[in-house]
Design a protein around this nucleic acid. Structure first.
Lengths: 101, 101
DNA sequence: AGGGTCGATAACTTAAAAGTACTTGACAAA
DNA sequence: TTTGTCAAGTACTTTTAAGTTATCGACCCT
């Protein structure tokens, strides 16, 4: 993720959110993980060359819902995530924290 | 999972749900994955010797919510899952379907 | 018996995700 | 230029998870 044009790194931006009390450390951590998951999901979809509309057909999850997920504007339910991942040949697993990222 | 006392295997029971049209193949698959995730979560919590009440303190997620998650009576939001997994030293990852189970 | 903890549950309110239908702006191809 | 597709978004309703508080039965122990 290249934020150099904004004049600061992602880490600096995050630190600022923390310093100003906008987010707690826990919220930062959860947010980072969500961002990582979203990135993986988008990558998986695009690697398969499947549009959001096509994925709606395959998964039964509506395109606006998929768009909201990918934009990070919602925290989707597990069921929804599993539904959209399945046609991409993926699923969710619980892994040690160190293994992630 | 030992269902022998019920006179049928889990696979047979699942097939029956399918045959009678109670659930679609997609719903069965999603359900199986959820069950697997729930099992891993409960195992992780118990291995750490942390009670639901203690996990409430550590994660900020209320004990009744954790109980509902473990019982499988809700499909929790990603955010909630990440919050309860973090104190257990775990997180979620997207993995190939074959890798799961 | 009485006091602790544990997980499950009830009943209710609040917050938020998902469904629905339609629209918009960007982009590419004909 | 028009047509089509894509992702994003708008506005609204419905569904459901989460929060809250309190309780309950099982278990242990002392």
């Amino acid at each position: 993720m290249d934020n150099s044009a904004l004049g600061g790194t992602w880490d600096e931006f995050r630190q600022e959110l923390l310093d100003k009390g906008y987010l707690t450390p826990e919220e930062i951590a959860a947010s980072d993980l969500r961002v990582a998951l979203i990135g993986e999901f988008i990558k998986a979809r695009e690697e398969k060359g499947i549009s959001q509309k096509k994925l709606e057909e395959l998964s039964g999850v509506k395109q606006p819902v998929i768009a909201r997920m990918e934009k990070g504007s919602t925290s989707p339910r597990i069921e929804t995530v599993l539904k959209v991942l399945a046609p991409l040949g993926k699923t969710l697993a619980i892994v040690p924290l160190e293994a992630a990222k």
